[in-house]
């Protein structure tokens, strides 16, 4: 397939900008990507974004890198994925390269520390916001099962420190059984 050069440039710039702003690691990239690719560019659907998060989370490697591979692949195939990986790794590569020459000064800098403490509070708010936005869709279905799965997985991850991969596998099985049960009854699935 042939893609417009503009798509690659847009993919690169988007992931570069997002990666440069993912302080706090891991899931922070998800709300940023959601805003960019779901709300602004409409390249990805809301539900699809959650699916991609599940894949990114259960694959080896950094969530940010995995999520950008998925987005790049969806928008522009293998080349798209390579472009988004490049966009995602370049900011940390450049920033750490520069910092590594004076890292003790950076680590002990008071202003940097103030900015980081402030930013951590902002990041926490960003994550809480996206959880509410995404969580609404679960409650709007007016079915007990998704809400129960949400509550049970939360308890398992939060309070019992159950392995995330295990939680994902169990929920996949629950989803499969539910689909079989629903189609036997002739009703709509989840």
């Amino acid at each position: 397939m042939k893609y417009d050069k503009k798509v690659f440039i847009k993919l690169f710039l988007s992931t570069f900008q997002l990666s440069a702003c993912t302080f706090g690691g891991g899931f922070v990239i998800i709300p940023l990507m959601r805003k960019k690719f779901v709300e602004e560019l409409h390249w990805i659907e809301e539900q699809e974004m959650i699916d991609l998060t599940a894949i990114a989370q259960s694959s080896p490697g950094a969530i940010a890198v995995n999520a950008s591979i998925l987005v790049g692949y969806h928008v522009a195939g293998v080349i798209g994925a390579l472009v988004t990986v490049l966009g995602t790794v370049l900011p940390p590569l450049m920033i750490i390269s520069v910092i590594s020459f004076f890292y003790t000064a950076f680590r002990d800098n008071v202003i940097v520390d103030m900015a980081m403490t402030g930013m951590l509070a902002g990041v926490a708010a960003v994550i809480c916001d996206v959880v509410i936005t995404m969580g609404k869709s679960v409650f709007q279905k007016k079915r007990i099962l998704p809400v129960a799965v949400l509550a049970a997985s939360f308890t398992a991850v939060r309070f019992w420190a159950v392995n995330i991969i295990l939680v994902i596998l169990v929920c996949a099985v629950i989803g499969a059984i539910d689909t079989m049960y629903q189609s036997k009854r002739g009703g709509a699935a989840l």
Binding site: A54, T117, V123, A124, V138, L150, G175, A176, D178, A189
Partner: peptide, 28 residues
């Protein structure tokens, strides 16, 4: 079938992000 499985996963994914979010709030 795949849609059913994905539908089962979605609440779990949201729960995980919620847990990570709470950790960040406490950390902050």
């Amino acid at each position: 079938m795949v849609q059913g499985i994905l539908a089962g996963l979605r609440p779990a994914v949201i729960a995980m992000i919620a847990s990570a979010g709470i950790s960040l709030v406490i950390m902050s």
